[in-house]
């Protein structure tokens, strides 16, 4: 009984999310079409006659009324067809499917780095509570949190790519190598992605650090900790078996949303390092007025955010059974 109710509430949440997503897409659909500017512009060469201009427009289906366009869009969308991208001349699904794996690889590594880094530093700060390291890390995280990624990104490019020339400043791999060794290719990817992943994780790291540290602090003076300590359990064991698991809960909720947003594109980092990610794809679509691709990117971002936060909730439920009750209410 309990599990079926849980299932129902999850279903309910999912439908609300899908409904919201539908609203978002519809809103954008109308917005991009009432906006000034014309996507067919760049495909029109100077010699085209006005009739042909109309023809190009009709091939984009831009000559119809908005509601007609909208209805045909919905019909196609239901079958999973989001149209053909104006600038790539390929189905939107294909274009996104090409970019998505890289984005997930890239943002997942940044995500893991910031999560682990945040945890490690928090443990370190906790260990040296109120001592030099703690203060240093706390101050440092406050500072790091305030460094915009375009400043840190440019700084790293200047230092490592322009001055020291250790890391490449752009791209995800060396083009034209004849090497087929997997290990070699992996290293090549890692070499190219080191700086971007570092820059991307630097903005999130202080947040996780703060979350973990505050949680440790809060639980540190709770009765159960005092009890454990009184029983002579080692500090290390308290930390690893009790404090960290206890703090995970609230962090996972935050991490779910955070990961979703990372998946939908780390725009600034992608721009600085010219990486082929979702963020640049979406902004490119916006600047080129590639309507189907704009909608496609938004939808993908929305779906990813919903999925990751759902995943986060499921994990939380798995960890902490008490939450089920809260969810049911």
């Amino acid at each position: 009984m309990k599990s079926s109710a849980l299932f129902l509430s999850l279903i309910k949440r999912l439908t609300t999310s899908v409904f919201v997503l539908f609203l978002t897409v519809s809103f954008l659909f109308v917005l991009v079409r009432i906006a000034p500017g014309d996507p067919s512009q760049k495909f029109l060469s100077p010699n085209l006659s006005p009739q042909l201009v109309e023809r190009v427009k009709s091939s984009f289906q831009l000559d119809k009324q908005i509601h007609e366009q909208y209805i045909s869009f919905l019909k196609n969308a239901l079958t999973g067809d989001f149209g053909v991208s104006y600038s790539f001349h390929r189905p939107v699904n294909e274009v996104i499917a090409e970019v998505l794996p890289f984005t997930i690889l890239f943002s997942l590594s940044a995500f893991i780095l910031q999560l682990i880094g945040g945890l490690l530093f928090a443990v370190l700060a906790f260990r040296y509570h109120q001592k030099f390291w703690d203060k240093f890390l706390s101050r440092g995280s406050l500072f790091l949190y305030a460094v915009p990624s375009f400043v840190s990104g440019l700084f790293f490019v200047y230092l490592f790519s322009v001055q020291l020339q250790i890391f490449p400043s752009s791209g995800i791999k060396t083009v034209g190598t004849l090497e087929n060794n997997y290990f070699f290719l992996l290293l090549d990817y890692a070499h190219h992605l080191f700086l971007p992943v570092l820059v991307l994780s630097l903005t999130g790291l202080p947040v996780y650090f703060k979350y973990f540290r505050e949680n440790f602090e809060e639980n540190q003076n709770k009765l159960f900790t005092l009890y454990l300590r009184a029983n002579g359990i080692s500090e290390r064991k308290i930390l690893f078996s009790h404090l960290i698991p206890n703090s995970l809960n609230s962090i996972i909720a935050y991490a779910g949303v955070d990961l979703g947003i990372l998946f939908s594109g780390a725009l600034i980092t992608e721009v600085i390092f010219s990486l082929p990610g979702m963020g640049r794809l979406a902004v490119g679509a916006i600047l080129q007025r590639d309507y189907p691709l704009i909608i496609g990117c938004t939808l993908t971002a929305g779906v990813l955010i919903i999925l990751t936060s759902l995943l986060a909730d499921l994990i939380r439920l798995k960890i902490d059974k008490r939450l089920i009750k809260g969810l049911l209410n």
Binding site: T16, S17, V20, T24, I261, S264, G279, T298
Partner: peptide, 8 residues
Amino acid sequence: TDMFLSFP
């Protein structure tokens, strides 16, 4: 509100 929060 959800709509505004549902994509970056």
